[in-house]
């Protein structure tokens, strides 16, 4: 019996993939052995990231790791992928939202409609600004060309931010060549891992979301061809990668804020930042008005955040 081989492409470049996906795939390959091997490809390696969804749907690529937004997924839930402004505060919020508040079923159903298997959702880092010039007030955001997620960009443009989308691997260079003034794409761990800390000088501690939501997907046909035990093994390895990222980011964020020497920290006062949080409430309404599915998801985010606020410390401190 010949080895099943899959091609998987991640949204992440090689340096980041070393943490967010490679350990899980290496582990899978080691256990599955001759039965199945997954070849991992990095950002834009086989197809550009904006074509990832399409390539997976057509079977050019068998599996994908990405958020909904970056891979331009044609589903109703795309807008929540990556960073949904103020949708979550901590990285543990994501698995709870998916496993206890029903997002998982919604995602699986939405992707099934477009011929793609949603395997599982994972939690990444919070969303902060890393910029060449310091940001001390909302006025400093005005006119900044910033690489960010489409949805976050749409939200931030009301504060004068000019969102720019470029291939992920080109960001570091684009900051150096002046195409970008900064990045609102990750927490400080990625800024250091990817090399963005070398080209920016300041890190804004206020965040617009507590955790990025990323997913593993597969071409539906290829997924269904797999024997049950390999499906289970693949799921387990991906779940394990979620766990790895939980501590890698959580610990990394704190450690680099305290010990990192490449970026200076700045903060916008809470009272002023409240304007951004208030804008998010309006933004949620706008999104909810777009469709039934979106309204359902927004309602879940609302319910969840209300529950957490009621639960009090340590879930929420204000």
């Amino acid at each position: 019996q010949s080895t099943i081989t899959w091609r998987m492409q991640t949204y992440a470049g090689a340096a980041l993939a070393e943490h967010v996906v490679k350990p899980a795939i290496d582990m899978f390959n080691k256990i599955a052995g001759d039965r199945m091997q997954i070849e991992l490809f990095y950002a834009d390696q086989l197809v550009p990231t904006s074509e990832l969804f399409r390539a997976m749907q057509r079977g050019t690529i068998d599996a994908v790791q990405s958020d909904d937004d970056s891979m331009a997924s044609p589903t109703e839930v795309t807008v929540f992928g990556g960073y949904f402004p103020f949708g979550s505060r901590y990285s543990l919020d994501v698995p709870v939202l998916f496993n206890q508040y029903g997002l998982d079923e919604i995602w699986k159903a939405e992707y099934e409609k477009v011929g793609v298997k949603h395997i599982s959702a994972g939690s990444w880092d919070p969303c902060h600004f890393a910029t060449k010039d310091p940001i001390n007030s909302l006025a400093d955001l005005e006119g900044k060309r910033v690489f960010t997620f489409p949805t976050a960009g749409r939200f931030l443009s009301q504060f004068g931010v000019v969102p720019v989308t470029l291939p992920w691997e080109d960001i570091e260079v684009a900051v150096q060549t002046g195409e970008l003034d900064g990045i609102a794409w990750s927490g400080i761990t990625e800024d250091y891992t990817v090399g963005w800390a070398d080209v920016t000088n300041y890190f804004l501690t206020n965040n617009i979301s507590g955790a990025w939501i990323g997913h593993f997907f597969a071409n539906m046909g290829r997924w269904e061809e797999l024997p049950e035990d390999l499906k289970a093994l693949l799921t387990v390895c991906m779940e394990q990668s979620h766990y790895y990222r939980q501590w890698w980011y959580w610990g990394g964020e704190a450690s680099l804020r305290v010990n990192g020497d490449k970026m200076k920290l700045t903060t916008i006062p809470d009272a002023e930042w409240q304007q951004v949080e208030d804008a998010a409430v309006k933004f949620w309404d706008e999104i909810a008005a777009e469709s039934e599915t979106k309204a359902k998801v927004v309602e879940i985010f609302r319910q969840y955040n209300a529950d957490m606020a009621k639960a009090g410390r340590p879930y929420r401190y204000s």
């Binding site: 086989l46 079977g59 290829r222």
Partner: peptide, 18 residues
Amino acid sequence: TGGSEIGFSAAMKLMNWY
């Protein structure tokens, strides 16, 4: 599967190479 799409997907990649 999907091998017939790669030639064209290079055109999209080229477009992204600003």
